[in-house]
Design a protein around this nucleic acid. Structure first.
Lengths: 393, 393
DNA sequence: ATTTTCTGTGAATCTGCTC
DNA sequence: AGAGCAGATTCACAGAAAA
């Protein structure tokens, strides 16, 4: 079962439920904490002043990334990429961005309980600045976590590595914080009895989960997948905890919090986002308690490209490969390409080329000379694979 | 076969090679650049002053990040370090680390060529500070890359996620840098014809690759795997480039650089590391030259204007061109222009015009009728190119 | 009804040379 | 320095359309 299948199965199961709204504030709570399970509309720092200090268990923050994009970007098919060009993502300078970061971190710090913790997500444009600033302010980093995107946007111009991940920082309010929630056992059980690592694989938020506006276009440029919030909330909150999201957007944090029987508070400036978020959260029915286990993607065998055999030293550059009958020969190069005369390409391309075919499985076609005779390079791949899937003792 | 055995097998295989030491400085170079392929022993910043400015193509830096061992840090301002040691304070310590980071980044920046680039590796303890500082100094981040550890150390206390990755930052010296090396095509070919992503999977440096001291203990606490450096150097340097490692340690950068036919310069303070690194690098035999050539990017192939196909008689004036689906048609003219009705222009302009697009690659858009069916005119260009390269050297 | 093909799209700091 | 232009460049899905 794939990650996607898992996710639809989970969502279908959740929709069938008809349990009472566990996370709705009770009458007593409503009088005491009128901000509970609400979206506060307005500027993040001004609105946070309405909350009492030490009232929040967890903060999840998805601040503007300060992308600093240049001109338009077009795909190889000449279609235009719908970039993040919103006003809220534009800052005058690094200094302005740092001041903004400092302000919301301080506001958030005031409302956090001493045992509270903070999650921030960002990309290389902003995450280093945010991370340094939160260290400066006394937050204590517990982990950095990488969201590996299953289906990232490619680098269309071929000038960089595919930007295939975002970074999350998990930090306690204080260095000496006691009682920070981490549901270690539950996470481990949900992960085939293996500790959950700091690199998480999730697809982007697409398809029916992605909120659309009246025109059918995406409502928010950076809506996060619910699976990501699910993992965060099941890992680092308890049922009944209060989760604050100071950049609420379309309310993913609120929707997942409600589903998981946690309280939320959101702050959002844009009225259009707030309206959609309210409707979205209203439609959520909390899962019954026994259904609150996390979803874990199936661990699949890592794909091993030919280049990694060269990198790992299993095949030295300059090695000659042949086919099983030694009719064709090729030279391995340091970058993982094969050279046949003046031509070069991947093991698959060159395997196809020497045979005059459209396609070829290079792993089984090309062989290497060993002490025990000619062996397909696929046996080397198997060795790498076992090295890469080795479970720590 | 275990990972350890794999590594010995590889090292043995590489030692068997007996090619000339391609990366050793020639006599001329030795006089001109006496620091080439050397380890400079001493303080990083002081030693870097010995190198001329704009002399280095790439920097790989694995800086120390143990914030609490003041003595382990090489700081520009020694008096300040003493003060911190006596009255250790978190804020003071971050400040000291930032000053240290600033100093080595500036030193490195001076020796980098304008087209040069920098790699830094770190963990959540230091990487956010380093990333923010290098942005402050004018470096321009090209990617952040995650090294996913195949076999990380588990979190023994069960209080955190398994710390299973480290973060690398790849940055150009300047925002407007031109000519930064990125061997995109070669990377793609070595990765089964897929773009390489920003998350890389490698095992830790263990087994026979891991240098040991006389007691059999690991010599260096954070020796990096050679495969990681292999990836970095094949991706972002060319043969013959100069790679600087200001925190040389056990010389992984130097060993891989030599093997790949790149020059290195190392700076290291600890004599024990320097000795081991020298012996290690001396034992390295470079890969044969024919294994070091990379895939030729299309962008660097000789430019062949469409007109020369007409001149060479490969396409006669009056020939009709169409797109792959025969939706559009154009007429070849003697001067190498295309005519569509009353309009005419280059193959690119007219390709764009008939589709109503801003731009178009006419070489792949326009097709010509051949015996074997419709073929893109790019195949005709390829014939011209191979005719050009067939000229004896 | 089922399978195949086509089209659209996602937090992106995304060209390089000549005149 | 800025304009002009040749020409190089994409992966994993989802959903619609076609077969």
């Amino acid at each position: 079962m794939s990650v996607l299948e898992l996710r639809s199965a989970r969502r279908a199961a959740v929709r069938r439920l008809d349990a009472p709204v566990a996370s709705a504030a009770s009458p007593v709570e409503a009088a005491d904490r009128p901000w509970l399970d609400q979206i506060l509309v307005g500027d993040c720092i001004a609105q946070l002043e309405k909350l009492p200090r030490h009232s929040v268990d967890l903060v999840f923050a998805d601040p503007p990334y300060n992308l600093q994009l240049g001109g338009d970007l077009v795909r190889p098919d000449q279609s235009k990429v719908d970039a993040v060009d919103d006003d809220w993502d534009r800052f005058e300078s690094f200094e302005a961005y740092d001041a903004f970061t400092r302000a919301w971190l301080l506001a958030v710090r005031r409302v956090l309980k001493p045992s509270g913790a903070l999650w921030v997500i960002g990309s290389y444009h902003n995450i280093f600045r945010v991370g340094a600033k939160l260290q400066d302010l006394g937050f204590w980093i517990l982990n950095d976590v990488v969201w590996r995107k299953a289906n990232p946007m490619p680098n269309f111009k071929g000038k960089r590595f595919t930007n295939a991940h975002e970074t999350l920082i998990w930090a306690s309010r204080d260095r000496e914080a006691k009682g920070v929630t981490f549901n270690y056992e539950a996470l481990k059980v949900g992960n085939d009895d293996l500790q959950v690592r700091s690199d998480w694989l999730f697809p982007l938020c697409t398809g029916s989960e992605r909120l659309k506006n009246a025109d059918g276009d995406k409502l928010h440029p950076t809506q996060k997948p619910e699976a990501l919030l699910w993992r965060i909330l099941t890992a680092t909150t308890k049922p009944g905890d209060v989760v604050l999201d100071p950049f609420f957007g379309t309310g993913t944090t609120g929707a997942v919090a409600k589903r998981l029987g946690r309280h939320f508070v959101g702050v959002e400036r844009e009225h259009a986002y707030v309206e959609h978020a309210r409707a979205r959260i209203d439609a959520v029915r909390p899962a019954p308690e026994e259904g609150l286990a996390g979803v874990t993607p199936k661990r699949s065998e890592p794909r091993v490209p030919f280049g990694s055999l060269v990198e790992a030293g299993l095949i030295a550059p300059g090695t000659r490969l042949t086919d099983a009958r030694r009719r064709h020969a090729a030279l391995v190069r340091a970058d993982g390409s094969l050279a046949v005369g003046p031509e070069s390409g991947s093991i698959h391309r060159m395997g196809a080329a020497v045979q005059g075919l459209e396609a070829c499985n290079g792993w089984t076609f090309w062989h290497v000379e060993t002490e025990g005779g000619l062996a397909p390079i696929d046996v080397l791949r198997q060795r790498i694979r076992s090295a890469l899937t080795a479970v720590p003792a």
